[in-house]
Design a protein around this nucleic acid. Sequence first.
DNA 1: GTCTATATGGGGATAGAC
DNA 2: GTCTATCCCCATATAGAC
Lengths: 225, 225
Amino acid sequence: MKPESPRPASDTKERLLDTAERVFADHGFAGGSLRRITKEAGTNLAAANYHFGSKEGLIREVMARRLEPINREREARLERLLEEAGDAPPEVERIVEAFLAPVLRTKHELGDAGTTFMRLLGHAMNQPSDRLRDLLTDQFAGTARKFLAAFGRALPGLPPDEILWRMLFAVGAMTHTLAMSKHIVPLSGGLVDPTDVEDVTRRMVRFVTAGYLAPAAGAGAAEAT
Amino acid sequence: MKPESPRPASDTKERLLDTAERVFADHGFAGGSLRRITKEAGTNLAAANYHFGSKEGLIREVMARRLEPINREREARLERLLEEAGDAPPEVERIVEAFLAPVLRTKHELGDAGTTFMRLLGHAMNQPSDRLRDLLTDQFAGTARKFLAAFGRALPGLPPDEILWRMLFAVGAMTHTLAMSKHIVPLSGGLVDPTDVEDVTRRMVRFVTAGYLAPAAGAGAAEAT
DNA sequence: GTCTATATGGGGATAGAC
DNA sequence: GTCTATCCCCATATAGAC
């Protein structure tokens, strides 16, 4: 919002964030040490505490730097498509795309750092009761509510709880895919190309949209256990 | 395979595994210390190294104890349904169920420990190059290949790479849901009940089956970015 | 098999010079 | 803003008594 500083932003601060993102993704938040991060960033140990106050402060900035723009873009896309739809119910596929594309686009723009961040997101999601976890879910809650409302309008036949479950499934499909896609290459014998973001987006949107459009449970078939 | 020892198995060894599962799930593999695990298990620090050789040995046993039976059951269910189908192509929904139900059933049987293990699985999946990661993917590869072949027969219209992607989506939907289901309760205002395993299984099978049955990409719609 | 005690190293955070 | 040096704590692993 305010004019960028003329030189390439601060300097070591950005380098620390980039390095921390990678190290935390590779070793987890607990396993990634400030010593390692500052060393690989080419600065000294004290710099991390100087710029971020503490290890937790660094973690929070690493996450927020990526997540805030993603959720902003998601909401902007959603608002746009709702406006275009006017009084008519919006299309499910377009809502799904508004939800997924900003993440995939971010991953694409960031290159390797994008994949790294997706793994990092996986770590963050698995923190159970930490302040960090609460931060993430709180921040996501606003975006989630807007999408849940939109899906509710697009899928009037589905009860709200079913829509909520399906959003959880969709988020899982997305985060897991982005974090793991590299690892399915050997399993496929080189069949898949996880670097083709538009291709992956198309496949993911198709799968998730079909899931949302599945008929409601009713007197369901699947005999569990 | 060999006769169980008369008393409730060893004793502290099981307690250590149970405690380690919980502590690792809460704090990650790096963040969960042997000190904490042994203390909460009510034994001494040296016991962990005595029984498992090292921290890594403990981690491996924690994971293997749950994963091996799950993948065995998955394969057994798959074989059974393939036999029943005979020469006809198997039904997609039944394959999906053979893949998902053993995990959900395990989670159900284990109660709280089941949820715990699912979070733990999330941690393990996010380890990038560790030996642990390779162990998991190697072990899963055999099961995955059998399911990919079955899906190939059930969905002759889908190219193999699409089937592979969809399996990745399905695994993500499952693991993420099982790890996070507890956290969506507040978001739903109490609408959802993650403890009703048959209910969750039915919903998940329905969503994932619809995703598998979506038409192949072709000259796809979704304009990405 | 279980314990205490300890060896050895790495961790986050900070003080204070430049 | 960046550095070195240091405080103090916690980690894994092991030795050796019981």
